[in-house]
Design a protein around this nucleic acid. Sequence first.
DNA 1: CGGCGTTTTGAGAGAGCTCAACATCGGTGG
DNA 2: CCACCGATGTTGAGCTCTCTCAAAACGCCG
Lengths: 180, 180
Amino acid sequence: MITIMHMSISKLFQDARDTGLAPGETLFVAGDEVTGIFMVRSGRVHLQRHTTHGAHMVLQNAGPGVVVAEASAYSSRYHCDAVAAEESVVAGMPKERFLSALADEPALAESWSALLARSVQAARLRSEIRSMPRVADRLDAWLGEGNALPERGRWQEAAAELGVTREALYRELARRRVKP
Amino acid sequence: MITIMHMSISKLFQDARDTGLAPGETLFVAGDEVTGIFMVRSGRVHLQRHTTHGAHMVLQNAGPGVVVAEASAYSSRYHCDAVAAEESVVAGMPKERFLSALADEPALAESWSALLARSVQAARLRSEIRSMPRVADRLDAWLGEGNALPERGRWQEAAAELGVTREALYRELARRRVKP
DNA sequence: CGGCGTTTTGAGAGAGCTCAACATCGGTGG
DNA sequence: CCACCGATGTTGAGCTCTCTCAAAACGCCG
């Protein structure tokens, strides 16, 4: 069932305009007007917000088939930044066209609602993970949710997603290597 | 506009069945089958999950007019517990009836999607708050978001919502009383 | 080889968590 | 009215853990 729902939203983006993104390239930043809705075709796009002193926190990790910043469809301006974590391609379509398509097709609207509902659960899970004080607990909960540690050279991204400093994650990983 | 969207979902619950909840009474627990959708009429219902050693964490603070566990509409079973934080009344309607009403009325479906979108933003904000290491920062961010400290006798609830221990919140409040 | 970014490791300080004692308040029942 | 009781608020001391600053060791690529 989930696959079917996923398919119908994907189909809506079939004839959308594709754009390539280089690693680190930004799709939009907080404050920008919301004119389009984007779906990741390949690669990975991070929805993030800046904290104090330059550090950034990941609020959504959008892989292939995932809509970036779903919640912005009903806002006039973005609340976060979106940047490509790697070489990516995103499909974009005008917000008005997207919303009218939902209004015309009830089945599509239901798929969209179900997708938003899963985003709510994902975001709540993230907040649950981040309220754990110990890095070890956060990592366990994150790994237990189907997430996997990225390849070497990208561990910092995992740290940002867990809401901890790089050093703290490195130490935890070292601790696990010697004493699992 | 927000008010209008809010109204239409509320109207859907006009002829729903009301149930009273005593303080501390549970509406449902994690694992229960999702048979109905609930909206808070009066009082306050907390959506929460148990952590280790009995402490609980608030994932949603549903006041009057707010739908409890919106994300569960597309799940077969609940992922969290819902308990009344105070004397409350909730309106419940069968899940099938709720979903078919959305399918029949496009305007209603759009309101529902917009409501889910706001829940996503709220949950993301919560995760942002909880990834702050200092209690003072969490409290500031929480207060800056329209939240207010509850009356005396319910400060622990605020602590649960901020994801900190009671003592930590008490100390921070004491710190602010003497040196604002 | 020489940068540049990532990974590793060290040391110190800060802040929350835990356990614990005690005060305060509200309600109950003798 | 007062003693008792439970829950909430308050404060203290110690521990643990992360954060911060800092300095290396790798690893990759021009």
